[in-house]
Design a protein around this nucleic acid. Structure first.
Lengths: 182, 182
DNA sequence: CGTCGCATGTAAACAGTTACATGATTCG
DNA sequence: CGAATCATGTAACTGTTTACATGCGACG
């Protein structure tokens, strides 16, 4: 089983394919679009942009802005685009399987006096909040004036979140019922 | 947001709470029970067992077995048990959000000519295989002669896998339908 | 004047896998 | 005899977060 390899490269190339961006801007865009199934930190973004430039997958222009620090805006190159396309056509690596909630539940009988219900309750509440956020996102996307061609795919990723979160809520309901009656 | 901290400690303590084990044995047990939501590698197990012993959470006995290398069997101590109990009562850290399949789907429109259907098809097949494994596990557990007290909780973790995988299959069905008719 | 937002970047620490070294026994 | 299984352990590498350093402008 291949371990999850470095995908920050491809994630950044993907967002640069939308247009030139600064490191700071990329972080904003990531947080505002895919935060639900992807995250990146500055500690990865800035070094990776440097690497991308060294490898000819992106170029940068430094500008002295009237206010604040000089900004470095990165653009994807043709080679960057083709690297992105190669990655997109490739099978994704299986996700890491590490779920602490389930591990705790698995060992729940090993600690007398502790009731895992609170944990499951908190999990359920979080999933409901997630579903609310998804509903908002859905409304926003569906009411957009001119939907971009990517939108169809964005909706599919949103749908994933919805169906998964719904299943998680159903599971939590079952668990709480089961634990309550024992 | 707290990043996923080191939980190998607690996982090993959990399995040691079932009885004394070697590093090698722990790996086997983990693979045969929770592999579905937890994994550990030798590269973490052996150093961590050493650490647990140094901190007084486990003790070890080295034995010269008639055949093969000397084996080191670890046992959990009272302090180890109480550390386990503390962890069990604590809220779990939220899981890392990194899903490469969704990221690829999100950018699918950025590569002309590539069809993400194959990826989703492969995902679907894997989930169906997962469901089959779960069904087998369920049969085995339900036909056990004398179910241990932990069994109730094991079933809950199994149920999580079932409901999630079912939701994933439904999602894949929707996606394939959507992509096929466009 | 404080703090928020824009903006870049590094260093240290942590988490985790993979590959390797070592070696005996058992089973086909 | 070769492969699988039992068994321990390390080293190198990769991936990732967090905290910090730096600094300007705008807004209240």
């Amino acid at each position: 089983m291949a371990r999850t390899p470095n995908r920050t490269r491809q994630a950044l190339l993907g967002f640069l394919s939308w247009g030139p961006q600064t490191g700071y801007g990329l972080r904003k865009v990531i947080d505002g679009s895919v935060s639900n199934f992807w995250t990146e930190s500055y500690g990865r973004i800035y070094p990776m942009l440097k690497e991308l430039e060294e490898e000819g997958l992106a170029t940068s222009i430094e500008r002295q802005t009237p206010g604040g620090r000089p900004t470095k805006t990165y653009s994807i190159t043709d080679r960057g685009r083709s690297e992105l396309a190669v990655w997109l056509a490739d099978e994704p690596a299986p996700p890491a399987r590490r779920n602490e909630l389930l591990l705790k539940l698995f060992f729940a009988a090993r600690a007398e006096g502790t009731d895992p219900s609170n944990m499951v309750e908190a999990f359920r509440a979080e999933k409901l909040a997630e579903l609310e956020r998804y509903a908002e996102t859905r409304d926003e996307l569906e009411s957009a004036a001119s939907p971009p061609p990517d939108m169809k795919y964005w909706m599919l990723t949103l749908r994933y979140g919805e169906l998964e979160a719904e299943a998680h809520v159903r599971w939590a309901d079952e668990v709480l019922k089961e634990l309550g009656t024992s």
